Simulated scan of single mutants.
Amino acid sequence: MSETGTEIETPHGPARVYRHEAERPRALLQLGHGAGGGFGAPDLIAATEAALAAGVSVAQVEQPYRVAGRRAPAPARQLDAAWLAVAGQLRGDELPMLFGGRSSGARVACRTAAEGGAAAVLCLAFPEHPPGKPERSRQEELDGVEVPALVVQGERDPFGRPVARGRTELATLAGDHSLKADTAGVARVIGEWLERTLPVL
């Protein structure tokens, strides 16, 4: 996979996009990282490979705060604005566009799906609540997604387990928030979901 990124200007500084092209693309997946990690995360590697195998090109989006070398994530509104700015630049053909991400990136994908015109949403390790604080639920972000969505969650994730409602599916795998215990499972459930979902987009 290419490691050459392209910078795209956003209202909060440049984001960096790493493109991975499927041979005969059926869709484009805009994929976001977690709050403190990059695209070396095992589940993001598995998701990218599964998407490419299903004929879905992938645009991995590095948020401006990470491009600038900061560790602490930007506020949600800045993350969302930067994400949508990138989506506006990437949307150049008639292929369906999917939003996806890991942890914090999954939340961004959910919050922006409607405004960004996403045809489907992929959530890896959706952080349902902060560890030990189930009363601080983020379920409403997932419930706001009106297009087909897949949540891939570790069965021992300290960030909890969201509820699948509407057009959302939940796949629970062995492991914790990292989803690295069963990367083959991550790739499998994503591939199966894409094969079910793409024909109806």
Rank of each mutant, 00 (worst) to 15 (best):
P42D: 06
A15Q: 02
R167N: 06
A87D: 14
V67K: 11
V108I: 14
T172I: 11
M97N: 04
V58D: 12
Q153G: 12
P14F: 12
P75Y: 09
R26D: 04
L98M: 01
G132H: 07
L79P: 10
E140P: 03
P96I: 08
G55P: 05
W193S: 09
R107Q: 11
E9C: 07
G37V: 15
F126S: 04
R71L: 13
A171H: 12
E195D: 12
R196W: 02
E49Q: 15
K180P: 00
P162T: 12
A87H: 13
P64Q: 00
G101I: 02
G55E: 07
V147T: 12
E9P: 01
R16W: 08
A113Y: 02
G37C: 09
A51F: 01
R156H: 15
E21D: 15
S104L: 15
D43G: 00
S57T: 04
P148V: 00
E9S: 13
E3I: 07
G34H: 01
E195R: 15
T183M: 12
H20S: 15
E192H: 11
A120M: 01
M97K: 02
R138H: 11
R111H: 04
E169L: 14
L142V: 04
P73T: 07
E7S: 08
A113W: 08
L52T: 12
E169F: 05
A171Q: 10
T197R: 01
C123Y: 12
V67G: 11
G175H: 09
A187C: 13
